[in-house]
Design a protein around this nucleic acid. Structure first.
Length: 487
RNA sequence: GGGCCGUUAGCUCAGUUUGGUAGAGCAGCUGACUCUUAAUCAGCGGGCCGCAGGUUCGAGUCCUGCACGGCCCA
C-alpha cells in the first residue's frame, strides 16, 4: 500500500470506527436471493413485483440534495438505486450521504420502478453497508488499463471492466458445455496425479519438486496422457480429464507455465474418428458460445463450418519449400535448409529442426480450423505408426487462428515398439534435448496387459477460450496469470 | 536468451525532443441541488516522477545498471 492510499484508508477507517462499528458488523436482514440480472427480468414479467432485496458494489453516486441516485453492480449486471429523504427518513438519508462510498458493498430493499428515461430503478426503503471499501476504485470511464495491475489485482479488473468479467463467465460456460457434451456421450471424468515420478506424455521441461516423507524428487505433470491410457487398459473405454499441466518454459501470448488441458481417450477409435468428432465438437461450441459457425477473431473471421481443411505434414512442406519427406528426414539436408531459413539449428535435435522448419513456413497460415495430419514418427513417440507409411504416425494437430489448439493421435499400443520409441527419446535426451520424453517402465507394463486400439486427444482449453472469446493473449483468459514477484 | 517500448496523483494520461518551482480529467474532501445517469455548479487538498548510481550549479527530463510489465524475435 502506498502512503497516499493510506490517507484514504485511514480516513474511511476512522469514520467507521467512530460511527459505523455496528453497521459494519451487521448482517443484512433480507439477504439478496437473486442476481441483479434476474431481478431485472422479473420486473419485465410483472411490473408490480413485490419489494426486492438485492446487494452489490456501489460504482457511482449522484447526489441530488434531498435524493441520491447510485448504481450497484455484481459480476454480470448493474442496477440503479434511488434513495429519497422522504422514503428512508432524515436520519438514514444523512447517514447514506455521510457514509456510503463508491466501492462499498451495499444491501438494499425497495420497490422497482422506471424513471422518466425508462431505466429500471430500485426505490430504496432500507439499506445497509455490508462491506466497506477503504480504497478509491479505478476511474469509472477508462477503468484500469495497466496490465500489471489488471493481472495482479484481477478483482479490480473485474469490478472496473465489465468486458473482462464477461470473458471469464464465458470461460466457465465453455468448460461446462464441454463437460456436458462428453458426459452425454458416456465418458467418465477422472482425476489423475499431478505429482509424477516421471515427467512424460509430452515434449516439455518439467517443474521439479520434492516429497520429504518419500525422500524423493517429483515432477509436476507436463501431461496426464500415460495415466489416462492406463485407465483405458483398466476398461475405462471413454475417459477424460480437465486439469492443469505445468511446463517450465517461457511466457508469451500463447504460453503460461501452468495451463488448463483437456485430454480424452476413446477405445476402438482411430485418429480419423477423432477428426470427425473434433469437427462436431468445435463447431458446436462456436455456435453455442458465439451464436454462429463464423467467429470474429481480431481481423479474422474464423469459419467453423465442417468439414475442416486437412493438410498432410510433408505435402504441406513440399508445397511451401519444394522439398519432400526424404529431404527432411535426411538430417544433414534438413539442418542446412534450416540455416538457409535463418533458423539457429545448432542446439536442436533433428526432429526439432524439422518441427522448426514447419513452424517457420506455416507462419500466418491455418487461420480457419485446419488439421495438420500424418506427422513424422520421430516427432511423436507415443503415436501409432501410420498404416500406409512407416516414417509417419497417425497424428494430427488442429490449428485455429494460426496456433495449435489440439493434438491427437491413434495411440501406440504395442509395448515392444513403445519401449523402442522411449529408447530413441533417451538418445535425444543424451544429445541435449531437455524436452525429450522420459522412459516410463510402468507404462510399458500397462501396455503389456493390452491397451485396446485407442485414439486420444488433448485440447488446450485456454487457447480454445481465447478464440471463442476473441482474446488475443492467454493472460486474458487466465484469472491470475503467472507473473514475476513484485520486489 | 536478444531487440524495442513502458513505469509521473487512487485511476486514465500530458510533461522527456530543447535540464530551470509537478500538470489535466475522473476519483477524493467541503458546500448547493428531490428523475440523475461520464449529473451539474462553487471551492479545496493530493506526488520517494519504478529503484540505485552517475553527469550537472540544478535531473521527471541526459547517461549506466537493476526490477517489474508489454510487444516482437529466438
Amino acid at each position: 500500500m502506498k502512503p497516499n492510499d493510506f490517507v484514504t484508508v485511514k480516513g474511511r477507517l476512522k469514520r467507521i470506527n467512530d460511527v459505523l462499528t455496528l453497521e459494519y458488523d451487521s448482517r443484512i436482514e433480507n439477504a439478496p436471493s437473486k442476481k441483479i440480472s434476474e431481478i431485472c427480468n422479473l420486473f419485465d414479467i410483472d411490473p408490480n413485483y413485490e419489494p426486492v432485496s438485492l446487494a452489490g458494489r456501489v460504482i457511482t453516486i449522484r447526489d441530488q440534495g434531498k435524493a441520491v441516485f447510485a448504481h450497484i453492480k455484481d459480476a454480470e449486471s448493474k442496477i440503479q438505486i434511488y434513495v429519497k429523504i422522504d422514503v428512508v427518513g432524515e436520519e438514514r438519508f444523512s447517514f447514506f450521504k455521510d457514509f456510503v462510498d463508491v466501492g462499498d458493498i451495499l444491501g438494499v430493499k425497495g420497490k422497482l420502478f422506471r424513471t422518466k428515461t425508462g431505466e429500471l430503478t430500485v426505490e430504496v426503503e432500507r439499506f445497509e453497508i455490508l462491506a466497506k471499501c477503504l480504497h478509491e476504485l479505478p476511474e469509472k470511464w477508462h477503468g484500469v488499463k495497466d496490465p500489471e495491475v489488471r493481472y495482479r489485482q484481477r478483482y479490480l479488473d473485474l469490478i472496473a471492466n465489465p468486458d473482462v468479467a464477461k470473458i471469464f463467465i464465458d470461460r466457465t460456460r465453455i468448460i461446462q458445455k464441454i463437460r456436458d457434451y462428453f458426459n452425454s456421450m458416456g465418458f467418465i471424468e477422472v482425476e489423475t496425479p499431478i505429482l509424477h515420478q516421471i515427467a512424460s506424455g509430452a515434449s516439455a521441461k518439467p517443474f521439479i519438486t520434492y516429497h520429504n516423507a518419500l525422500d524423493e524428487q517429483l515432477y509436476l505433470r507436463i501431461a496426464p496422457e500415460l495415466f489416462l491410457k492406463k485407465l483405458v487398459v483398466g476398461g475405462f473405454n471413454r475417459v477424460y480429464e480437465i486439469g492443469k499441466n505445468f511446463r517450465n518454459e517461457g511466457i508469451d501470448i500463447h504460453h503460461n507455465p501452468e495451463f488448463t488441458m483437456m485430454e480424452f481417450y476413446v477405445a476402438y477409435w482411430d485418429y480419423n474418428d477423432l477428426m470427425k468428432f473434433s469437427e462436431e465438437l468445435f463447431s458446436y461450441l462456436a455456435k453455442e458460445i458465439r451464436g454462429s459457425y463464423k467467429v470474429k477473431f481480431g481481423d479474422y473471421e474464423i469459419d467453423f463450418t465442417p468439414p475442416f481443411r486437412k493438410v498432410r505434414y510433408f505435402d504441406y512442406l513440399r508445397e511451401k519449400t519444394g522439398k519432400g519427406k526424404e529431404f527432411f528426414l535426411d538430417e544433414r539436408k534438413a539442418r542446412e535448409f534450416a540455416r538457409e531459413l535463418g533458423i539457429n539449428e545448432e542446439r536442436l535435435t533433428h526432429p526439432k529442426v524439422i518441427d522448426k522448419i514447419f513452424d517457420h513456413v506455416s507462419e500466418g497460415d491455418f487461420i480457419n480450423p485446419t488439421f495438420v495430419i500424418d506427422f513424422p514418427k520421430i516427432l511423436s513417440p507415443l503415436a501409432k505408426t501410420h498404416r500406409e507409411d512407416s516414417d509417419l504416425v497417425e497424428r494430427f494437430e488442429l490449428f485455429i487462428a494460426g496456433f495449435e489448439v489440439s493434438n491427437a493421435y491413434t495411440e501406440l499400443n504395442d509395448p515392444e515398439e513403445q519401449n523402442k520409441r522411449f529408447d530413441e527419446q533417451l538418445k535425444e535426451r543424451k544429445m541435449g534435448d531437455e524436452e525429450a520424453q522420459m522412459k516410463d517402465d510402468d507404462f510399458i507394463t500397462a501396455l503389456e496387459y493390452g491397451l485396446p486400439p485407442t485414439a486420444g486427444q488433448g485440447i488446450g482449453i485456454d487457447r480454445l477460450v481465447m478464440i471463442l472469446t476473441n482474446s488475443h493473449s492467454i493472460r486474458e483468459v487466465i484469472l491470475f496469470p503467472t507473473l514475476g514477484s513484485k520486489k
